[in-house]
Design a binder for these strands. Sequence first.
DNA 1: CGGTGCGTTGACATTTCTCAACTGTTGTGG
DNA 2: CCACAACAGTTGAGAAATGTCAACGCACCG
Lengths: 234, 234
Amino acid sequence: MPDTQVRAALEKLPHFRNLPRELLDALAAGSRVLELRAGETIFTQGTEPTGFFAVLAGAVRVYRISPDGREQVLHHLRAGQSFAEAAVLSFGRYPAHAIATEDDSRVVEIGAATFLKLFREDPRLSAAMVGSLCMWLLSLVERIEELQVASAPSRLARYLLRLPATGAKDPLMVELPMAKKELAAHLAIAPETLSRLLRRWQDSGVVETRGRHLALLDSRVLIAIADREGEEAS
Amino acid sequence: MPDTQVRAALEKLPHFRNLPRELLDALAAGSRVLELRAGETIFTQGTEPTGFFAVLAGAVRVYRISPDGREQVLHHLRAGQSFAEAAVLSFGRYPAHAIATEDDSRVVEIGAATFLKLFREDPRLSAAMVGSLCMWLLSLVERIEELQVASAPSRLARYLLRLPATGAKDPLMVELPMAKKELAAHLAIAPETLSRLLRRWQDSGVVETRGRHLALLDSRVLIAIADREGEEAS
DNA sequence: CGGTGCGTTGACATTTCTCAACTGTTGTGG
DNA sequence: CCACAACAGTTGAGAAATGTCAACGCACCG
């Protein structure tokens, strides 16, 4: 039975980690793993939820299309993160689109029917979902803080400083989780502005860029830029 | 016993409305009503949660102070809305400040200890909390959408169009729930820009302003401004 | 009646966007 | 394997939006 794969997947999710065996088994029975290539759709804005999802491998983008056709990226998700919980629990329709953004992405879908039944019966599962929703809240609040900062340099500096370090920490290395074009949209600035900011900082020795890999050479300057309303280096 | 007041207050909250009697009674036992004047503090960023809250009357502002001292308003709350659920359920500290912004505001505090005990025992209560958290998620996502729109006219138009109508609907009347200065901060624009936008729209007959009361005379133009990347009325 | 603070208005500086051209990389089909 | 298309990224120049600074009117409050 293929459920062992699903079961193992569920166990690894942060918010399901502490659930008892039998509950995980029951959840697994109503779940399935999807294998996706870059660009494949997971669900579509406005449709009725068949379940909620968690990323096992690869990456997923959640975005909305506004009435006039512009695309607004709400979130980028990587292994261990779940999404569309609220659609299943409360909204009754997906409020956004979701697609895989990398080849060989794997996503587990926790079926709505099974899940809702268990959710109503078992307080441990509802507690787990509450934890999950709270994490979402926190990340959205941080996102709002980021966007409320007026100047583009501030927004970018804040964003860079919040990225998880990859590898060494003295010359602090980070990796952009998306294309620069998308990052620009995420920060609500034009791609050209993003490019110029990085260029300027590179020229003044604050950062060093190699594709999506950045070295934050002088984080004190970056912190100053993030805190003030945006400013020069040196 | 003064619990009848608390009890009646809890009954009116949207997410507690469907809870059974005994559960409401138990919650009420751990809750209390606060009477506040404008400017009085409800809780402070970083402190340990004593409970979460719901507005019964008046208004509450939730805001954060960033490292450099600027104030970022996260939300304005009115009767029926609850807040700080996540602080109690998950974070273990208040992630923001909350103050009353009107005289004679009334707020009910649902004590953390009592609440958490009931929450862990009763799936109906956890379901109610999930509903509450989902509402928060939705409003934050809308807020992000609002902020991601580049132009100031768009952001303002969107905001105005989402305000609930007060009174008549043909000349659509709305009321700003906060001072214009604060609204400007909310939309991440300068107060002067806000003033000039409203002036321009008034001159072109799109809106009519009388203090915090606005008449949206031509919502089609407003919708166009909201959808495009912001532009003239003519 | 003077103070305090919001809201408005004007002039100006600056940031940021837009448009356009050019580069470099990637992937595809011949 | 190469040529070419497609697209992200960069750079420049000019335009437009927005912020800043400063002054003033106006209401509210002691």
